[in-house]
């Protein structure tokens, strides 16, 4: 079966004053129709840049230097970033909602103005129809009395409400894929849960695929079918949700899991990952996680960055020389 979206060996570099910053360095992943996937990693690991690269929204000094983004059979990286074909995809076929609901809506435009503009652009609606559709969308995402509130400004809504608006906006043109970049990070925990529920419900209703980008494995655990773990611009582990949670193979994944509160580990202390993410300029040749890795061996130090290799389990691949499942099973559980 043809993938809906397939990213192959994507490379996005930033030419900074301190040198070349390889924010995304050979990332490949795919999404199928109506599939929910998760992309997980710490801040600065390149997960957001990956998605922005898909949308061709990389601003200077960033530049997509290699790879392919095949969407519905076409490499959309070949389109000009501000050309008509790319713009038709952006917002129309692939929509994105962002981390900060407080700042991601334009403060000087009403909800109607902000919702209608994509409807008028992509679905060629006229003003009245767009307005009706916008009201309907707001109702769908659970904004109370949307008719009355559609002419309000963003600052008149709470953070959770605004993120609902963002979801409505993202889905307004029936996109094939919705990319949600840390959609719930800035919100309190109860709102987070509600929103995730809403979002999955909505993509189901709209028959869209969903890419959830998050630093929190817990967020994707329940909804994502497959998960990609990113570290320092590379995917370090990928597999089905079940596999990743049951048999994490990469030390970083294990670290992530240990830092997330889980029902089956009540009473255990949360263990943070030691050290800091690496500086992405002047990366060493060897494994980027090595300085923080509790499992490091001599081989890790002397060998180049490992490739992703298949390990037991459906579609499970990991970028590590060490076979952790055999070395230590205790730390995980």
């Amino acid at each position: 079966m043809e993938r809906l979206l397939e990213v192959k060996d994507l490379k996005t570099y930033f030419n900074t004053d301190d040198g070349l910053l390889k924010a995304v360095d050979g990332v490949s992943f795919y999404v199928d129709e109506q599939e929910i996937i998760g992309v997980v990693g710490e801040s600065g690991c390149g997960k957001t840049v990956t998605q922005l690269s898909v949308m061709q929204l990389i601003a200077r000094p960033g530049k997509i230097v290699g790879g392919e983004v095949i969407f519905e059979g076409r490499d959309i990286l070949k389109y000009k970033p501000h050309g008509e074909e790319m713009r038709a995809i952006r917002g129309g076929k692939i929509a994105m909602i962002f981390q900060e609901p407080m700042t991601s809506l334009n403060p000087v435009l009403t909800l109607n103005q902000q919702l209608s503009e994509s409807l008028m652009l992509h679905l060629k609606m006229n003003k009245e129809d767009a307005r009706k559709r916008a009201i309907e969308l707001l109702r769908l995402v659970g904004i109370p009395s949307p008719e009355a509130r559609i002419d309000d400004y963003p600052h008149q809504f709470s953070g959770g409400m605004r993120q609902r608006v963002m979801i409505a906006m993202g889905l307004s043109c029936n996109p094939k894929i919705l990319i949600a970049d840390e959609p719930t990070t800035a919100l309190d925990v109860t709102t987070q849960a509600q929103l995730l529920e809403l979002m999955t419900e909505m993509v189901e209703r709209f028959r869209s695929s969903l890419i959830i980008v998050t630093h929190n494995l817990g967020v994707v655990a329940r909804y994502a079918k497959r998960i990609y773990i990113m570290y320092a611009g590379k995917i370090v582990e990928e597999g089905t949700c079940k596999e990743i949670f049951k048999h994490p193979r990469h030390p970083y994944t294990i670290g992530l899991l240990n830092s997330v509160p889980r029902l089956d580990t009540v009473g255990k202390r949360l263990v943070p990952i030691e050290g800091l993410p690496p500086n992405l300029t002047n990366m060493p040749d060897y494994c980027a996680f090595l300085p923080r890795c509790p499992y490091k061996t001599e081989k890790c130090r002397t060998s180049p960055m490992p490739d992703l290799r298949d390990v037991p389990g459906e579609g499970h691949r990991v970028r590590c020389y060490v076979d952790i499942a055999e070395v230590d099973n205790v730390t995980v559980k």
């Binding site: 700042t103 334009n106 992509h122």
Partner: peptide, 27 residues
């Protein structure tokens, strides 16, 4: 232009003119 909502505007597929006139100028 570096504000999040401008990125939102770009992500909607708006043309540069629309982004500048509607989202950047007034602010």
């Amino acid at each position: 232009a570096s504000q999040d909502y401008v990125r939102t505007a770009w992500s909607k597929g708006l043309a540069e003119k629309a982004v500048v006139c509607r989202h950047i100028l007034k602010n």
